[in-house]
Write a protein that binds this DNA or RNA. Sequence first.
DNA 1: TGGCTTGTGTTATAATTTTAACAGGGATTT
DNA 2: AAATCCCTGTTAAAATTATAACACAAGCCA
Lengths: 215, 215
Amino acid sequence: MEKKVSASVVNRLPRYYRYLTDLLAAGVERISSKELSEKMHVTASQIRQDLNCFGGFGQQGYGYNVKLLQSEIAKILGLDRGYTAVLVGAGNMGRTFAINTKFESRGFRLVGIFDIDPKKIGTTLTKHTIMDYANIRAFIEEHHPAMAILAVPKQAMHNVAQELIDCGIRAFLNFSYTELSAAGENIAVENVHLSDSLMRLSYKLLENDQKNSEG
Amino acid sequence: MEKKVSASVVNRLPRYYRYLTDLLAAGVERISSKELSEKMHVTASQIRQDLNCFGGFGQQGYGYNVKLLQSEIAKILGLDRGYTAVLVGAGNMGRTFAINTKFESRGFRLVGIFDIDPKKIGTTLTKHTIMDYANIRAFIEEHHPAMAILAVPKQAMHNVAQELIDCGIRAFLNFSYTELSAAGENIAVENVHLSDSLMRLSYKLLENDQKNSEG
DNA sequence: TGGCTTGTGTTATAATTTTAACAGGGATTT
DNA sequence: AAATCCCTGTTAAAATTATAACACAAGCCA
């Protein structure tokens, strides 16, 4: 068994991937760890270390082929798997996520959107007809989506998560205010808290303000 | 001058804050680092270390007073400053953020929403009438908001940021696909990328899947 | 009130993460 | 084709971060 890659490394990969995708679109063919590091504001050493957790994708004296590297990172991140997802909750957050995060261009496939609000059920969102949450179990058992995007109120979150785990969902992107943690042994979870980002920003702002009033 | 608190520590504070707020609402009066650590899935040592970067808020043999600790963390994060913010971009992301992230309950104040779309200008969003972005400079020079929430297309992001910096904005919460980095010496920036979270989730899912197919 | 327990703040140790250094394979140039 | 330069992969060192250990202040109970 290979040694586990640390979270710090994995956390940086999406950024590399996004930038490489931009480079690719701009027609750039090759890039060195030094150039990349300047754009990413990290050290060249770190880039090389990060990439070499997964294999040697570069060539001495040349650097990295942008197209190759981009597709290798895609593979590492599982973007070539065509993972399917259901969106639970078609409120503001759910709608934004469906519209904003171009699933297909990232290699994912959104296969169903669910809500409990009768006013929303039957309406359309990004080509999908919103379905009744009451029918989600049957849907999942038929289509076997891998992931669920949880954009439901915090009161409902844990129950929804548990029900979906029972149906076989094994990854959650959770937008609820409340943390989804320890969902189970092999359940992948990623929590997104917009208000946490706001508070972190606030801290940095305060820190700068204090630095300036001292200086 | 005090020694700089590391980003790792600051990143954990919002979570502590959220949980303490829940405890407070539930009427819990005191909590020990051990109890807290179990809920937060970190070690008790880490909790004590984190808090002691900012001062001793606990008492031996007793633990931490929930109300006091919550308000101390609020102070640390600058939530007692009444920082004001403008929202730039009233598309899906902007709307969601305005509605979803209860500014006021976090100690912030949203003072204006701007967009360039004539169809949106003049309409209402969370009690605010959406204003014409063309007038943002005058508005900022009059009201001096501290922060800006950027929910604009990536093509526009850098220009908008630069204009707002010129007007005196000193903190940005950026939702654009593109990174806002190196905005300037004393400019606080926090980038939020939903697609990065999705990719990280994908990695974890793939990792679990591979572990299982081996095992 | 005295002894015992609890749980902090802090110091010491361990682990992880980042940065630096460098040997050598390959590209590029003349 | 030889020589030079470039830039990776990798190993070593430094810095940071997390965990454990512990002394002692304060609560708690008899």
